[in-house]
Design a protein around this nucleic acid. Structure first.
Lengths: 223, 223
DNA sequence: GTCTATATTTAGATAGAC
DNA sequence: GTCTATCTAAATATAGAC
């Protein structure tokens, strides 16, 4: 019922070069349609027309609509991992704007995630599990990077505040990307970078960029 | 085509007490369904069943589905204004967590807005205009409150940074509310309050980039 | 003002030809 | 592996009875 883990691809089918290529073509089209209309309102016929086949072909490949959704989520997972850095500690955080820059040129990635995420606020939604797990793992990853920075002495934050900071960063990114979807003329990278700078200044205990002043003013233990 | 302004209610019809009550009942049900499934995937039959009438009755009242959407957006507008404070300057900002607290007990308001907002990232969406205008007016309102605080000497920010701060706050709220929809066990008010405190501390502190102020790096107002 | 009945379109999915 | 043809269910919307 719910789409959670990795779908088992048919052992024989789907491994022939031609089939694989077609499969990918369908998944890409489906990602586009689901991003634009959502899962429920995005129709198989619409996707099929985009590819240039019939909806029956889609069913052959993915069994049903939910099977296609699973494949789309896997595809999104891979594609969006391209954008995220593997750097440790604070370097990872500092590269978040670059990730957003990448999103800017791959609008579909943002659109798909936000569309499915809000749609999945309905507990019955087949992508619900995937989305919730994705959030959890992103929070966990960001938290780990922050803790690395704390251990390295670059950041000063009480341990119990780390997750809240991670969630705040994610919320900020999601919210800015939502605004950008509605008003593409917005400079989302500049907006995020500016707020990230303030956040990093607070974490590192520095004041603001201008005054690189003498006394280290450590703001920690704020709860 | 696009839903923007105020719909003209029939002068005679819809003004009789019974009709008005029924109308409101339908709008509330529609808001619930649209919030849960989105506009496209939310069906008239589903709404009608909720009310206990047939879909034909809905069409009688609102002419078509888009007419119903217009009524729902108007309803949402009124309902969500209940939650927002009329206080000026920094007091308004400080009452934002209370607004979120209100949202907490009116989940449908959040769900409806976020669902329609992401759905409306499709430029063809009938609620697109409404949503974009809503964002603009909220940014404008928040910016005004911040400028009032600057004029009152409570906040120190360069004028050109005000809108960015307003957008950042909105993004943070939207993002947190999205996370809450997916994980209702999250304490969204605490999460937001904590980040708002940090933001206010930064605003009311006197050190900012491009600021011509003195050396003081006052971190105050951390609750 | 709401109903039943129905028209029309489109949805997801299946069967079997090629 | 893809097609055509078709099924069933559900969508929006209309017409006319009560």
């Amino acid at each position: 019922m719910a789409v959670t883990g990795v779908a088992e691809k048919p052992a024989t089918k789907g491994t022939y070069p031609k089939g694989v290529a077609r499969r990918k073509q369908i998944v890409r089209a489906a990602a586009r349609i689901f991003a634009q209309y959502g899962y429920h309102a995005g129709s198989l016929r619409n996707i099929a027309d985009d590819v240039g086949v019939t909806s029956a072909a889609l069913i052959r490949h993915f069994q049903d609509k939910e099977g296609l959704l699973t494949a789309v989520l896997e595809y999104w997972d891979e594609e969006s991992q391209v954008a995220s850095s593997t750097a440790p500690g604070l370097d990872h955080i500092r590269q978040l704007p670059a990730m957003m820059e990448y999103h800017l040129t791959h609008r579909g990635l943002i659109e798909l995630f936000l569309t499915l995420a809000t749609e999945a606020s309905n507990p019955e939604h087949p992508a619900r599990d995937f989305i919730v797990k994705r959030y959890d793992s992103t929070v966990a990853s960001l938290s780990s990077r922050i803790r690395e920075a704390i251990d390295a002495g670059e950041v000063f934050l009480p341990a119990e505040q780390v997750e809240s900071e991670a969630r705040g960063l994610m919320a900020l990114m999601d919210g800015i990307e939502l605004q950008w979807l509605l008003q593409p003329e917005l400079d989302l990278v500049a907006l995020f970078s500016s707020h990230l700078d303030h956040t990093l200044a607070r974490w590192t205990g520095e004041v603001q960029p201008l005054s690189n002043s003498t006394e280290a003013f450590v703001v920690q233990g704020i709860a």
